[in-house]
Nucleic acid binder design. Structure first.
Lengths: 339, 339
DNA sequence: AAAATATGGGACGGTTTTTGTCCCTTCGTG
DNA sequence: CACGAAGGGACAAAAACCGTCCCATATTTT
């Protein structure tokens, strides 16, 4: 499983290297993701004193793992390699590997990936983006159809998608219509950005949020809508976030009556347009066009992304009744909350 | 070649672990070989302050690598295992592996094994004994005939020979007669002790040191001597030390005239009864029965053992004209002197 | 039996190192 | 040109470390 045997033997003579490795790894990683930045900025970024950061960074500099310029410190190529090679070990030492496995078993899903820190922190979101992008890239095949929902977590991937391999042949599909205000996090916007980044094609679905019963039926019959519904049936990969019921309702600008209704029904979370209760059962559905749970369940891969302390309950509920083939990317904060 | 890759990557982030590992390894090893011993004794054994030893030993104790009793500190089973597993790494870090290879190339022999420290130090002699014993055990086969000379370095093996495998079937043969005073280091005594330790058989050769020409010829004709000379021709393994010319002459109680003669001939070293000059050429031979250089050269393995600063010249000279199949065990001190 | 030696644990100043926190000059950037 | 953030320098307070001794006890030697 691991080939850190010599490290583990060495640790018996030098137990202090564990904490040392974790500390320096964190700092080097922070420099890597947070780009060129100065000593003091880094210090409160990591919530450490200036001194501590300074000591470690001078050492990292002597080791040629970072370069110190006038813009600040940046990670060298060697630093990248060291980070890459030490990542599994860091995960092992931080217990993240173990937590990943525990969560995967608990939820009965394929795999869990934990990003150190919290998605509230920018550094973690950058790591998330890189990790998710890497994963997505490894999953796609020639002509894959990828359904994408909105949300800040999913949006974090954008800067790191690159046109490699078969990515240019895939198609990104908005998993549902827009959500109201925050345009930049809408599924429609994201798919277009994704597609642009990968030089791939995409399909948007612009629709009002709240349709009357009649309008809903009418829309469903529209040829363009029919077309996207057919696409949903052929989706290979679903990329979605998970939200809390309150947050979602607020984002949608739901009325107080609707909020009360949701609360009454016990809704705690939301994913691709469906509200579910603490048991993961769907209790409410937005009356709009969106991908159906059965489409999700029959897709080859499901990539769920969600983190942060506030989403612990929603995530836990969602995975009581989620697609088994799901790969779940979360942050350390949420992972701790769920264990 | 080595599988310390994860260690070496880790070292890039934590360069201090090198010295740390070496320091702790040395201390743990000292405890291992020097048996139960106290803090202060260990301190001047390692030429370190009491404090330093104390700090490290408390840590080793916490790590359960040593046990602290009223007789002093001893190495635990876990400690043994850690030492065993870390030994190649320690050799690598200390540059001993590299020096071993350099010396082997320089001398044109099969292999060099360097024992840390100096043979003047008891701890090193204990390590020497263990190492040489292990090596010898690995070399012998069913019915091997092993020629043994005297000397303190060779004698260091005695306590660590154990009756394993095919050792009981081997025969230890005194490579020559006695040397005078120091009985316990004579070849004759050693072979009997070796044989006893291994439950093997042995053959001694008791003869006066300085024979007249007539007596020498007469002795050679003796059946018992003829028998041992035939044995010399069948020897599989030669185990011998290397001495300086001065030391040997003194041990033998040579006359001043003889010493002057040796000096005139340029003798710098001695091995199994032969004096050789700085070029490794034999310049003088003791007139006694002993194994011949041609017997040595045709034996399967030659195990040479010698160390200490004072022997550097003698060793260097000896290996200018030594058997290619020699495996040479020396100490760090001599190794440094020769490079 | 008694003296001598060696053990681990405790204690305690003096010293070195570490730490937190300034200021300063120098740059890019707006 | 001005502002903010960069790295480097400096320094007092604090902490950690270090060398060293003492002590009660156990073991070894005499």
């Amino acid at each position: 499983m691991d080939d850190f045997s010599c490290y583990k033997v060495g640790r018996q003579l030098m137990p202090e290297i564990d904490t040392l490795l974790k500390k320096r790894f964190r700092i080097l990683q922070a420099i890597q993701v947070a780009g060129p930045l100065g000593r003091r900025t880094l210090a409160d970024f990591l919530q450490a004193t200036e001194r501590e950061v300074r000591n470690e960074t001078t050492l990292l500099h002597e080791q040629q793992l970072i370069e110190i310029g006038q813009k600040g410190m940046i990670c060298t190529q060697l630093g990248y390699e060291v980070l890459e090679q030490l990542k599994p070990l860091y995960y092992e030492l931080s217990g993240l590997s173990q937590k990943e496995q525990q969560l995967a078993e608990k939820f009965g899903i394929k795999k869990v990936i934990i990003i150190p820190g919290s998605f509230r922190n920018e550094a973690s979101r950058i790591l998330l983006g890189k990790e998710a992008s890497k994963l997505l890239t490894s999953l796609v095949e020639e002509g894959s159809k990828i359904a994408v929902t909105g949300g800040s977590s999913v949006a974090a991937i954008t800067p790191y998608l690159q046109p490699v391999d078969s990515l240019p042949t895939v198609k990104f599909i908005a998993a549902r219509g827009g959500l109201g205000e925050e345009m930049s996090l809408q599924a429609n916007i994201l798919v277009s950005q994704f597609a642009q980044a990968c030089q791939a094609s995409y399909k948007t679905l612009f629709m009002p949020e709240f349709l009357s019963e009649q309008a809903y039926v009418a829309m469903k019959a529209e040829p363009s809508v029919q077309e996207i519904i057919r696409l949903y049936e052929q989706v290979d990969i679903v990329l979605h976030g998970i939200g809390t019921a309150e947050e979602m309702a607020k984002k949608r600008g739901s009325s107080d009556a609707d909020k009360a209704l949701l609360k009454e029904k016990g809704a705690v979370g939301e994913a691709f347009g469906y509200y579910f209760d603490a048991d993961g059962q769907i209790v409410h559905q937005i009356r709009t066009i969106c991908i159906q749970p059965e489409h999700v369940k029959q897709s080859r891969y499901v990539l769920a992304i969600a983190g942060g302390e506030e989403k612990v309950k929603a995530i836990g509920a969602y995975f009581k009744n989620a697609a088994k083939q799901t790969i779940f990317i979360t942050d350390e904060e949420a992972a701790n909350g769920m264990l």
